[in-house]
């Protein structure tokens, strides 16, 4: 049982409830299912949303059967890895050190030592929610979100890490910056991040 339940989201979309550890494998299955008319497959925290083109035959049972045909693995074989070089010069690095009781150098060392996975994307185009943050780096969001966070800002909050794709408001604590283009409409795909991707951060000494 990969699918814990299926809920309709309007007349042209279905939300497949799954364990978080299964979301990528289930999303892959949904993409590969031989079902016509699927516009979008969108992983979220506890589910995968499937959007159909209006007018299509929305067959929840067929899709569920396709996903449940065999047990899915928790890791996707051959998942790609993205290396993100970071200058750890974020405005909140000092506060994160204070909140966690670590030296700034140890915050950085802990952050680069973790392996991250893109849990899902949203909020803004190219914005990845990364799983895998060390529990020692858990800090709350800012009390007052910034009106503008620069593109490439690497930030943490709760049990997640993120990279801001463009200038947006934001409440996560910024610990560093990357020059990696996070979202570029002229690139294909427009972002190097994708759900399920493994991500490693390395300290950019240059």
């Amino acid at each position: 049982m990969n699918v814990l339940g299926v809920r309709a989201v309007g007349e042209w979309a279905l939300l497949f409830d799954v364990r978080p550890s299964h979301r990528h494998a289930v999303a892959d299955r949904l993409r590969q299912a031989a079902v016509a008319g699927i516009d979008e497959v969108v992983p979220g925290e506890n589910g995968v949303l499937v959007c159909f083109a209006p007018g299509c035959d929305v067959d929840a049972d067929a899709l569920r059967a396709a996903v449940d045909a065999e047990v899915v693995t928790e890791t996707i074989p051959g998942a790609a890895e993205l290396v993100v070089p970071v200058r750890y010069d974020g405005a909140d690095l000092g506060d994160v050190a204070q909140l966690t009781g670590l030296a700034e150098a140890d915050v950085v060392a802990t952050h680069v030592a973790c392996d991250y996975t893109v849990a899902f994307m949203g909020f803004a185009p190219g914005f990845p929610y990364l799983d895998g943050l060390s529990p020692t780096l858990r800090v709350p969001r800012l009390n007052t979100p910034r009106v503008r966070v620069e593109a490439g800002s690497v930030a943490i909050a709760g049990d997640r890490c993120c990279v801001y794709p463009g200038a947006t408001p934001g409440g996560w604590r910024v610990i560093g910056h990357t020059d990696l283009p996070v979202f570029d409409v002229a690139a294909s795909p427009p972002t190097p991040f994708a759900p399920g991707l493994t991500v490693r951060f390395v300290e950019d000494g240059g």
Binding site: A27, D39, E40, V41, V42, P43, C51, F120, M121, G122, F123, A124, P125, G126, F127, P128, P165, P189, P190, T191, F193, A194, P195
Partner: peptide, 10 residues
């Protein structure tokens, strides 16, 4: 835009 929602593109 269709087919890019999983990358956060509305």
């Amino acid at each position: 835009r269709i087919g890019l929602a999983h990358l956060g593109v509305p």
